[in-house]
Structure formats: structure tokens, C-alpha cells
Write a protein that binds this DNA or RNA. Sequence first.
DNA 1: AACGTAACTGAACAGGCGTGCAGTTGCCAA
DNA 2: TTGGCAACTGCACGCCTGTTCAGTTACGTT
Lengths: 205, 205
Amino acid sequence: MARKSGSSGEKTRVAVQEAAVTLFAKHGFAAVSMRQIASAVGVQAGALYLYTPDKQTLLYEILKNHMEHLLAAWAAENVSAEASPELRLEQFVRFHIAYHIERPERVFISYMELRNLDPDNFSRIEVLRREYEQIIEGILVEGQAHGCFVIDDARLTTMAMIAMLTGVSTWYREGGRLAPADIAQHYVDMAFRLGGGARLAHAAE
Amino acid sequence: MARKSGSSGEKTRVAVQEAAVTLFAKHGFAAVSMRQIASAVGVQAGALYLYTPDKQTLLYEILKNHMEHLLAAWAAENVSAEASPELRLEQFVRFHIAYHIERPERVFISYMELRNLDPDNFSRIEVLRREYEQIIEGILVEGQAHGCFVIDDARLTTMAMIAMLTGVSTWYREGGRLAPADIAQHYVDMAFRLGGGARLAHAAE
DNA sequence: AACGTAACTGAACAGGCGTGCAGTTGCCAA
DNA sequence: TTGGCAACTGCACGCCTGTTCAGTTACGTT
């Protein structure tokens, strides 16, 4: 055999990325061989090099796609920059939780395999990460200026909030005790508490 | 050469663990070879097997030591079970932040390399992790019963708080903008906010 | 129907992997 | 001072690694 019947380059390209994502998430980048990826795709190892110049680039492309898609998805939410910081924080938290719950593997890889990027690729991804962090930091800073949030240290609160929100991907399992929408609601509440503006959202109390 | 002059089994045993911790933290378990560890210790690869039966056990021992030491260190804080939940939460947060800031490598490995444990070792470590999580969950639940904390979902708040607190190890660098004690204070404040008991600690505002 | 090219195989390369073990050396107790 | 053991070397084993490439087959176009 050589070329498979019904084969198409684009289909295989996608299959390679998906197989790599699944395997990297389960075993880690360094622990997965090109032969394992190839076998998951149903192809010989050599064929992978039609789609990536090397293993390192395969990882980089996965992280880059993930971050760019994340940023584009937030942009597509079309949350107006003139909306109140409270509304924007609520929207952001719902978006972040939903996005992270839906793509556990890519999220996992994206902060687990950063150290396996070579320095150049690492700093390219860092730029995108920073850009994403700026979204929430901007909301908090503006909310503080408006007086609707009470924050001691915006940078530290940003880091704490991102850690708290992203943490959902370490324990969430499909079909668990809470539905995604309930989880999102709880995180909205907790984000408001952290921001010192515990009103809105849940109202009452 | 064979035996080195001035050599002692116990010294080498410690050196092996420390070299492994440093290398695992920097490159990941799977990406580090026994030969690299040996070379960092100043020894040939074969000599490592005087101190560990295999690479897997070396990782397990590191995680186990870390978790046991963490639990023992908390116990040594001697925080009375009769103290108020507020006081206990404050003590716990200060302890957790200080501990995690002082041992970044071991902390990093302990949640990064869990998936590289074989199933038996994994569940042994999970028991210890659960035990640690119970400490904070217990404080929150009791505080809720006492009426000094206002919490919707204790389990979820626990996970959020642990993620927030442990997140410090992803960005903290020695000599950074904030001193450890300041960071701890901020995290105490934020923990109280999350727990819905924003009084105490910082007082005023 | 013939041809070019896209898709893929299968073997090969040099090097690294975890681990085992016979042999060598330094240290300490008798 | 001699024996025994603890500490370690150096090489070997079989296997796996990422990557390359000449050869083979299916598909799309002319």
C-alpha cells in the first residue's frame, strides 16, 4: 500500500492535531512518540512529516491555535467596551468557564506543556497569554476607577482570579454533580466577591 | 575509580532526590533521563539504582515526601481545632502561601507530574491530596455553620480557593514586586472575600 | 487513456533510553 | 593488617526515539 483510498490531506492534517492533543493531554508531550500519534491516526510515522516539520512545531501549533481561537472567541462575544465593568466581568466569567469546560484537553496542554516549547515559541505564546490576561485586568482596573469594584492590588487580583477560574478544568468532569451553567453562575458570584463588588448577578442575600 | 573518597550513602541519596526535583521541575519527568540525573549528582547512571528501584519510584518518593511533609508542617502549626473558623482560615492561608513560595519546584512537580505516576502510586498520592483539601473544606463548612462565612457550595468554594492559593506558585519569583508577607496578607484578604466573611484581618477599608 | 502529483509506506539512520551486573575501590571494624 | 562491605564504575543489553527518503499507489486533470 501507499496512498489510502478516500484519503485527503486536509482530513489527515486535522486528525493528526486531534490525536496529538488527546495523547499529549493524557501522557504529556515528552512521553508521547511520533509513532504513537501516527498509529492513532492510522498512518506510519513518516507520514506525519507531511503535516509538520517536527514534533516541536506540532506542539507549538496546537498551543498557538488554542490561544488564537480563545482570543477570537472572546472577541466574537461582542461585549461592548462601554458596558459597565460589572456586566463585562460577568460576561467574561461565563465565557471563560464555558470555554474551559468545553475544551479540557487543549486547556490542560496549554499550561502544562509551556515548558516544552523552545524559547522562541514560548515567548510567542506568552504574548498571547498576556493579551488574554489583559482583558480581565482591564475590567478590574476600570471597575476600580468607577468605584464598583474594591481592589487592593489589581495585578495580584487578576492572577488570583485567573487561577481560580482556570482551576475549573482540573476537577470538572462531564456528568458531574453540577451542570456547566450552575458552575458558571457560582464562579460569577465568586468573581464578584473577589472583586469586592458582591452585588448584581445573584442579587439578594 | 569506583568508590569516591568521602562518599556516604545518605549524602548521595539526598543529592539524587534534589537533582531529580530540579530537573523534573525544569523539563518534566518524561523528558529527563536517568543519565542526566546521575550527571547532576556526579555519578554514573548505574549508581542511582542503589537508591531507587526504578525511575517511577523515584518520582513517587518525591511526591510522597512532599505531601507528607506538607501535612506534617500544617500539623506542626498547632492551630487549635477550637479556634474560630476565621482565625483558622487566616492561619491556613498564611501557612499555605509561605509553604508554596518556599518550595516552588516540589509544588510544581506535585501537580504537574501526577499523570506520570502509575495507577497504584497515583491513588496513594490522591489520598494525601484529599486529606489536605479536607483541612480547608472543614474550616469553610464549620465557618458556614457558625454563620461567620457565607458560602453557597462548600466543595466548589474549596476547589476555587485551593486553585487561587496554589496559583501563587505559577507567577511568584524571588525578589519580585511584593514581599512574601505582603502577598500572604493579600491572599488572606481575598480568601475572606471568597468565604463571604470580609471582616477581620485587614479590618477597616 | 495517460500523466503528474498528492498521499503514504517501510526501511533505515544514529543516537538515546532504562536497567542489570561483574568488577573495582575506599572505608571501617576486628 | 586484614577482611568484609558499602559505594561506585563501565559496559552491555534490547528496545525505542525523531527524522529522512526512495519507492509505491490512488486521485484529479487533461
